[in-house]
Design a protein around this nucleic acid. Sequence first.
DNA 1: AATACCGGCGAGT
DNA 2: TCATACTCGCCGGTATT
Length: 337
Amino acid sequence: MICVFSGRTQDSGAVSTCNYIARNLGVRSGMPIVLAKRILRDDPSAVFLAMDLEYYQAVSERIMEMIRPSGQKFEQASIDEAYIDVTQNVGPDFDVAEKIGERIKAEILSNEKMTCSIGIAQNKLMAKIAVDAHKPDGFTVIHPGLEKSFLNPMPVGKLFGVGPKTEEKLESLGVHTIADLASMDQDVLSKSFGKNLGPALLKMANGIDESPVAERKVEQMSRIVTLKNDAEDFEFADVLGPISLDLSRKLADSKLICRTVGVIAITNELKIKTRSKTSGSPIQSKDEILKAASGLFVEMFTTQKDAQQPFRIRRVGIKISDFENSQNRSETLEGFV
DNA sequence: AATACCGGCGAGT
DNA sequence: TCATACTCGCCGGTATT
C-alpha cells in the first residue's frame, strides 16, 4: 500500500494506491489507512509505505522522455500515462503499431524494471478503453471496425469522465450499458447533462473521439496540507509559508509567473471551499503568494461568519494559475524602461 | 451580447 | 478518530465591457 500519512495520529491518512494483491482483498484507493490495516491485520506480507511523489515524478520523467520519440505526437496524460500518435507509421492494419507497442514495453522493462500496459486503437478514447481492459502488464488492440462491439456490453462507468455521479444519473434514465447510452436521444442527454457533456457522452458511446494527441501545458499548481486538528482558524505564516515557498520555487524552476492565486479549505465535514483572485500584476515570490493567500482566507472567514454557518477547517491549500513565461516578461519590461 | 472571472463540483492518477 | 495530494475540466452565475 502506498499511503499518505496526514500526521494527525499514527495511522491517519489515506491509501493512495496499492498492488493488485491488495485490491483483490478489498483495499481501494482513497480508503483510510486504518481500514486497510484492519482488512490486512492477519496478513504478515502487507507493507504500508509513505508516498514519495518526487521520486515517482523523477522516474516518470525518465520514462516519458524515453518513449516520447516513438511516434509523431506525444501527450503525457498523467504521471503514468501517455498517448502516442503513430498514425504515419501505420497502414490500414495495426501491425506496425503493435511492434512499436512491444518495443516500448521492452524498453521500459529493461531500463526501469517495470511493466506497463499498452492499448492500441483508432483514437485516444478507444486506446484508453483498451489499456483499461487488461492490467497490469497488458497489451490490448482494438482493431478498426470493432470499436462498438468492444464498447457495447460495458457499463457506462468505463467511459473516461463518467464517474459515480454521472453513472448514477445515467442509471436513473435507464442507461446501464454503453449500448444503452448509444441509443439515447441527444436532446434528452443535453437536457440532463448540458450542451457540451450531453452530446459528448453520445459520441463516446459510439467510439468517436476527434481530439488530437497534443502536448499539454501546465495550467495550475497547488499544494495542500492537513492541519494537526480541525480548527476555526490557523496560523497563516506557519501553515501557508512553507507551501507558498514551495510554489514559488516551482514557478521559478519552470520560469513562470502567475496572475491568479486561490485558496482551498476542506472542512471537518469534507466540504470544499475555495476563493481566488486574479491580479493585474505578476505574482512570483513566496511573500507575494503568501500575502495573497492570507487575504483570501481572511475573506473566506469573514464571509462565512456572515452566513452564520460555522465550520471548522481540516485541510488548507493554495493554488496558482494563469501562468506566463517570466523570461518573456522581463524582456518586454526592459523594452519599456 | 460576448467575454472574463469566480465558486462549486466531478473525475482521474 | 475513516476520509491524501495533486491535476484537469465543466457548469452556472455574475461582473465587466
